[in-house]
Structures are given as C-alpha cells and as structure tokens.
Amino acid sequence: MLTLNASQLDEFFALIEKKRELYLPVENKTGKSEYKRWVEGDKYSTALRTVKSAKNFFFAKSENLYDLKMDHKNVEVIDTREDIKEFVIFGVRGCDVKSFDILDNVYLQDPVDTYYKNRRDHGLVISMACSKPATTCFCALFDIDATSPNGDIQAWNVEDKFYFNPLTEKGDAFVEEFKECFTDEDSKPVEKQKEETLNIIERLPFVNLNMEGFGVEDKLKAIFDRPEWEDLSSTCIGCGTCTYVCPTCQCFDIKDFNVGDGSIKRFRCWDSCMYSDFTQMAAANPRLTQTARFRQRFMHKLVYYPIKNEGIYGCVGCGRCLVSCPVQMNIVKVIKAMGDN
C-alpha cells in the first residue's frame, strides 16, 4: 500500500497546494477542528469530527446563482458561474464521505444542479479511516465502515505513517501524479488497526439500534401519526443547529440580495425545515407547529428519503446533532422512540 511518513505530510500538502486548492481539518482557536484551506504551518488535525460537516464543499452554505439587473423596464440575467479550480479535501471521515452520495441523489438527479455538479467534478476526496470512534458515533447503523471509508482515495493513519489506497479513476490519476511522494509498504498495520477499531465500534452504544420499520412505504403513515412526535418535539426551540451541522441536510432557500450598486444577487443558502417560515407561502403554511416541522426532519431522513432512494437513509450516524443540539434532542432519541428499541 502507498505510504507516507507523518513527517513528510506538510511537504505533501505543499506539493498538492501548488497544483490545486487543498482543504483539510485544522484545529481552530476553541480547540475544535474545522476544514480550512491549507497554508504553510497548518497542522492536519486528527480529531474525529469537524464541527461543520464537509458538505459545504459541494453544497455551499451560501452561493450566488446569478446576478440580475433592472434598468427601468428591462431585466437582465447574468450568468456568474465561473470555472472552479481543482481542489482536494483531505481527511474526510467515512460518514461525511457517505453524505456526498446522499447529496448526489438529490443534486445530480434530473435536472442536474450545475452548481453542485461543477464542484463535485472538480473536487477530489481523500478520506481518512477512523481509529478512535466516539460513543456518539453510529455510522455502522447505516452500513458505513468507518475503518474503510469511501472517497476517491481512502487513507489510514497508523502511528506515524499514512496509508493511501485509490478507489476511483480520479484517485488513481492523483496518486500517479504525486507518486514521488509515496513509498510502497506492507498494509498489515492498516489491517491491524481496522480490526482494533471494529472491535471498538461493536461496543459503541448505538450501533445496534433497531431500524426496522423505517424507510418503508407501508409504515409511512403509521410512523407519521405516532403520538410520540409531540413529546419529543415539545422543547424543540426551532433553531437550525441540527440541520446546519448535519452532513446530509440538503434544503435551501433562494433569496435576492441587493448589492446596492443597482445589481441584485440571487443566491441560495442553506435553509432549515426547523424554521417556522420554511414552508411559509403567501397564503398558508402547511407545517404550522414545531412538532410538524420536527417530524418532517426525521421523517425525511428515516422514511421519505429511503423510500425514494432504495432504502438508503438520510443519516450517516456522524453524531454531530448529538453534540450540538441546544436541547439535547437528536435522531438517536427519535429512532429509539419510534422504532422498536
């Protein structure tokens, strides 16, 4: 397997950054890790999760769709899309890699979202296997192998070595391009680490939750009508924290921003089904209560999405919502209450 010494990592990064834009998790001033554009001196953070997921790389928190101008009665639509530079995201955990598939199912289906596709085409994902999963992790529940993540290239960090294994053509080409960086070594340490990690994963509290009944059409109405939604959502404050830290939440809003120089930027931005105005229309709002909104979010992830996408759940078990929810309400509590757990 291709390897790289930890001591050479920065050199490797510098080389990548010469040709592409490189993004990786770096510890921020609060001690947590966040993706950022690599600059000389940045240390790769091996922290288990970044506060925000990696979805921002493809589905941007906010992005300009096009510009508009109005001159008296005339309207002009200006295409502002630009060619995107090739970029590399390094160190994406298995759960976040999986989330890209989930977003693909939405954004690459007809009609293809060109903004998303553009970035997807130009991004290369180097994933990173987990070795110290947290007790709030439950990716295994969604058939994600955190010890062998997907991506264009999968990677492991065992002690002071990094191991790389390209999975896609893009990955092959990349490895070929940077081949002088790597040496070829035995992959036994990787196998050993995988085994140890899987051993931990088995002991994690949520990996064996029962998903029976979710994601099937004939139980849809039954789950929808369950009385538990009321209690689960009773203290939901309707903020968007869960949706904004979630790697699979994909909803957006389209709005106009008046730049002030006579032009309007029509942009799209993340939206949250937890917000009261999410489904507000001129005349009415079909989701009037926080319970309805709360239910929508989890129904979407656990029931609607899998029905539409061959049983794949709209959750990757990253555990971010368990950490971030201001009122400690999360998908695990919902699965427990709604499923047969």
């Binding site: 009609p111 059409e217 957006f252 809003d253 029931v303 539409k308």
Partner: peptide, 13 residues
C-alpha cells in the same frame, strides 16, 4: 425551487 431539490414542498415522500 420547482426542481425537486430545495426540500419543502413534499407531502410525505
């Protein structure tokens, strides 16, 4: 959005 992506017009699935 009209194109099945923005995620708000669903009734069930």
């Amino acid at each position: 959005c009209g194109v099945g992506k923005c995620g708000r017009c669903n009734i069930g699935d």
